[in-house]
Each structure stands twice: as C-alpha cells, then as structure tokens.
Design a protein around this nucleic acid. Sequence first.
DNA 1: TCGAATCCCGATTAAATCAATCGGAATTTG
DNA 2: CAAATTCCGATTGATTTAATCGGGATTCGA
Lengths: 136, 136
Amino acid sequence: MKVSARGKYALMAMMYLAEKNGDGPQSLRSVAQDLLPEQYTEQLLGSLRKAGLVSTTRGVLGGYNLSRPPAEISVGQILDATEGPVSLSSCATDEPSCPHTGKCRTQKVWEYLTDRINGLLYGLSLQDILDSKEME
Amino acid sequence: MKVSARGKYALMAMMYLAEKNGDGPQSLRSVAQDLLPEQYTEQLLGSLRKAGLVSTTRGVLGGYNLSRPPAEISVGQILDATEGPVSLSSCATDEPSCPHTGKCRTQKVWEYLTDRINGLLYGLSLQDILDSKEME
DNA sequence: TCGAATCCCGATTAAATCAATCGGAATTTG
DNA sequence: CAAATTCCGATTGATTTAATCGGGATTCGA
C-alpha cells in the first residue's frame, strides 16, 4: 500500500499553490520549479482542475490557483483526483460463492479499513498542513 | 492507494488458516480451493513463512499452519510480508534543497499518515476478524 | 495584428510492477 | 520406491506508471 509519485507530486504542487494563495495565477513553471517534471505536473494540474480543486487563467499572465481556501481542500480530495479513489476492497475474486466461509469476511475488513483511511485523508486539509497542526 | 491482489489473497489464505487453526496442516490445495490461483498462493505462503507468520510441514500429509494464535497475527504483518511495508513517504524527489519552502512539508504529512495507517493495520488481528469485532 | 507566454490535451513511449505459470528439486509418508 | 506434498528460481504477459512529444487554443501587450 503506497502513494504513487502522482499523488506526491500533486500534494507538493497543491501546497505550493496554498502558500501562494491570493498572489494571483502561478505559472506551471513556478509550480514545478526544479522539483517536479514540468510536463507531468501539467497533466496532474489538469486532473486537479477537472476535479474542481484548482482554477486556471490562460494567456500570457495565466497560471494556476486554488479554487477554494486551503482549509476546504483535503489530502483525500487531491489523491482521489490524481490517483483515483482509495480502494482496498472488493473480494479478490468475483466468485459469488466463497467456499471458505460462505461469506467472504475479508470483504468487510477492506471496507472497514478503507473507511478509516478515507477519514484520515479527508480530515486533513491544506490549511492544517500549512499550520502544521494535527501532525506532531 | 490500494491493496494489490497479493495482499487480498494473502489475507484470505490467512483467514482460512485461522479458521482451521488447530486442525493440523492444511494443504495448498485446500487453502487455495477454487478461490485463489494455486501456484500464486504458493508464492504468497512462501513469503508468509519467511516472515514467520505460517509454519509448514513437508511431505505427504504436509501443509500450512499459522505459526501463532490468530490474536497475535495482524493484517499489518500480513501486508508487510506480502506487499512490502506501507510507505507513503519520502519526498517525491531526492533534492536536498526544496525551493518550495526550504523544507519539504509534504514529507511530514506522509510520515504522519503512514503512522496512522500502520496503527490501524497492526491493531487489527485475525482473531478480531474471526470475532467480527471492531468492524461494525 | 502579431508574437510571446501561457494553458490544454490526446498520443506515445519506456520502464517498472504485478499476476501468474512453468519446471523441476527436496521432503515425508506408507 | 511411489505418491503427495512443499519449495523455489526463472520466465512470461499484461497492466500501470512516469514521463515526453507535438501541436492546438487563449490572452496580453507592443
């Protein structure tokens, strides 16, 4: 269980935008800086825009902005937009009948864990991270 | 963020062994039944054995057993053994200097989340699942 | 009106990972 | 010894991931 480069890049990019929130559009170049592969970051920002988390301005002085205050954007939303939803569950096989115990108990385990993890991820906002709250 | 088929298969296999705990060695065939690809499951049981979670008996009436009571085996241990450790962290790039904020704040986020998720995974034992506790 | 700076976006590639199989070796029982 | 089993490294094929490419669309300012 891990977070892909996509998710890591996306959080870095979003934290950058959170820091610059209110300072006008930030160009792709400035978001990616030397840290992130530029064109790949462009893809990610596209996904984040489609998910409604960033808004963009085109043209010469264009760039990217958070579409809402950092307090209203969570790590969970960012990961969903870039990596797809956290999904631990669904029985490994699609067998309707599970010879093991009749019902597949593991299914419930994954659902339970998915819920808990989503709770963590959706409960952590960019503002929390800016404040370095909840993380000592 | 997801759990691979490896992890799902492994938990199913371990739950089967937990149910049959005390009933003597369970053959690969009976563990895999129709649910899991047999040879792949064999690989996984090998990893679980190397991690000390199952013990084996070779020869004609041989098979697999939990190496300890179900209460002492956690979902976290199973996933570590089969999928490798949960690892969300490490800065996406290896840059020592982070132009964004001096220090990479996202690093701490991933560490925080990794700790929390590991807490969940290591806190959930096969016995808990047998009892269907902690999961309503 | 033109050119530069920027976002937009589908297609493609290369590498890594994953799921699974193969072929046989070693061990134990009867 | 034969059968049933675990053991294990190697290989394959499919999928996913990370990243680039190439060009199009939009806006600003001179």
